[in-house]
Design a protein around this nucleic acid. Structure first.
Length: 499
RNA sequence: GGGCGCAUAGCUCAGUCGGUAGAGCAACGGCCUUUUAAGCCGUGGGUCGCAGGUUCGAUCCCUGCUGCGCUCACCA
């Protein structure tokens, strides 16, 4: 890394040196290259949108980053870019004065400037600000990639993914259209709050730093708390804390939380990701399915369309979401009913189909294995998969009027991917203790992702936890869906990169 | 972690069937007061990701490493 920087630096060095020399010249001309403030009167788009009122009368003040310069002797055109748009600036020596034009000549693409001027339309019809005053607000010392465009064709786009992710600020400057993705991300989170607040949910905060991690199956990030002289973990989920609040008497709570999982990074996984969890007392998973459907209907209404291109698929939210039993789906896609099969029979079935469980896999894991391999990717339109094996759902309540091996749980699949996971929550502390003890045994047998026994949580439940339904929803994936991004890296400003 | 692919100027890319590299944009100098991928003339800029190996000679071939992408595994 250091070596390559030196090599790059050699050719960059000249450019950097020239920029610093310009900085010096600017100072010598008694201009401050780093301004303190600039009271804008309009954004670039404001000027364009209000051209009719602004033309030939008002003085406007606009500010932004210089993105293009076309010098023609004693007059020049530029474009500046602000958060939402661009506008052309016209510099004329006899309008802005000799000192001003001298300063202008020392500008580079990438500088941040403030312009005072009047609004007009050029010969070719482009709305432009004719500068009467130029204020340098921040001198650029490092060249930014130059992207040009004509008739919708982009030339020399800044496309290197590594650099775009590592220097996201450059990506945002040079590829401003990606801002739309992040703006929608922000909206989605805002609308999620609006939706839940509309149902009188309480937004809460629970610990990120946890002495025992739980609520999901995942490997945690571990840290050490010096004062307490013990290990702590970054949360993999906030479930067990939200349930403590339910026990405490709050009836509807939610948290939008960063969770951390010490696992592989790929197109769909970032070690640090955002999820929504919400819990509502006195409802079950049937209620939650309707509620989730309503949530998505709320979102698409906000966005303003009901069909979304997502990779090679079109996801249509206008139809009711399907509800399918996990075992029925497995039967449909592998052509055999696995309900009556024993653990050993399931193991052989998996082997026959060319998939292999890891050592220590049990009944529920084999069911999951079959589902993941043969069913998941078929579930394109929004589908609730319901009734999961108990063994892989230690926090969910046993299915009423059904097999003792099944729990009341659903996952929502869209575009072949899991979006949400929900249960009728187990509220029987005795059973909860047994289930977590079983997990502990698996853990001792080497299953790193088995859940830990959380005695404090069991104790809390022994005080009485009302019947509750709870949902976890992957916010990053929702953003990917609604913005048609193929990689989670494209919906997270600063995705995890190797250092 | 496995497989495949990529890494050449600040950016986007060419190229060398092995003889140490080019273009456009950007930069620098000059001309130009309605341009817009501005134009015209001129100039500079690269130990071709890193480390080894083969070779008279490697940016090119081989091996290893690093990073990124795709994919599989993993992943509730």
């Amino acid at each position: 890394m250091n070596n390559s920087e030196q090599i790059e630096g050699r050719s960059l060095a000249e450019i950097l040196k020239i920029r610093r020399e310009k900085l010096q010249k600017i100072k010598e001309l008694n201009f401050n290259p780093y301004g303190y403030e600039f009271p804008k009167t309009h954004s670039c788009n404001d000027v364009i949108d209000n051209f009719d009122q602004l033309e030939n009368e008002a003085t406007v003040k606009v500010a932004g980053r210089l993105m293009a310069i076309r010098r023609m002797g004693r007059a020049s055109f530029c474009h500046i870019q602000d958060e939402d748009g661009r506008i052309q600036i016209y510099f004329q020596e006899n309008k802005i004065g000799k000192p001003g034009y001298k300063l202008f000549k020392l500008l580079d693409i990438g500088d941040i400037i403030g312009i005072t001027g009047s609004v007009f339309k050029t010969r070719t019809g482009e709305i432009t600000v004719a500068a009467t005053e130029l204020k340098l607000l921040a001198k650029n010392l490092r060249p930014i990639p130059i992207v040009k465009e004509k008739d919708g064709n982009v030339f020399d786009a800044f496309t290197d993914k590594e650099q775009r992710y590592r220097q996201r600020y450059l990506d945002l400057i040079v590829n401003p259209s990606i801002k739309e993705v992040f703006k929608l991300r922000s909206k989605i989170i805002q609308w999620t709050r609006e939706f839940l607040d509309g149902y009188d949910f309480l937004e809460v905060e629970t610990p990120v730093l946890q002495p025992i991690y739980g609520g999901a199956f995942a490997k945690p990030f571990k840290t050490f708390y010096n004062v307490l002289n013990r290990d702590f973990y970054l949360r993999i989920a906030d479930e067990l804390y939200l349930k403590r609040l339910i026990i405490g008497g709050f009836e509807k709570v939610y948290e939008i939380s960063k969770n951390f999982r010490n696992e592989g990074v790929d197109r769909n996984h970032n070690p640090e990701f955002t999820s929504l969890e919400f819990y509502q007392t006195y409802v079950d998973y049937n209620y939650l399915m309707d509620f989730m459907e309503e949530y998505f209907k709320f979102m698409i209404k906000k966005i303003g369309k009901s069909q979304f291109e997502f990779g090679e698929h079109i996801i249509d939210f206008s139809n009711p979401f399907e509800k399918r039993k996990m075992f029925d789906l497995i039967e449909e896609y592998i052509g055999c009913d696995v309900k009556p099969l024993s653990e050993d029979e399931l193991r052989s079935l998996c082997e026959e189909r060319g998939i292999e469980g890891k050592p220590g896999y049990k009944y529920g894991k084999f069911i999951e294995l079959l589902f993941d391999n043969f069913v998941e990717h078929h579930l394109i339109q929004p589908t609730f998969v319901i009734d999961y094996p108990k063994e892989i759902s230690p926090l969910a309540k046993t299915k009423r009027n059904g097999s003792d091996k099944i729990v009341e749980r659903f996952e929502l699949y869209i575009g072949g991917q899991e979006f949400a996971n929900a249960f009728t929550e187990l509220n029987d502390p005795t059973e909860q203790r047994e289930r977590l003890e079983k997990q502990s045994r698996l853990r001792e047998l080497g299953d790193e992702e088995a859940q830990a026994m959380d005695i404090d949580f069991i104790t809390a439940m022994e005080y009485g936890m009302p019947p509750t339904g709870g949902v976890g929803l992957g916010i990053d994936r929702v953003v990917m869906l609604f913005t048609n991004q193929k990689s989670i890296k494209d919906v997270i400003f600063f995705p995890q990169m190797r250092t």
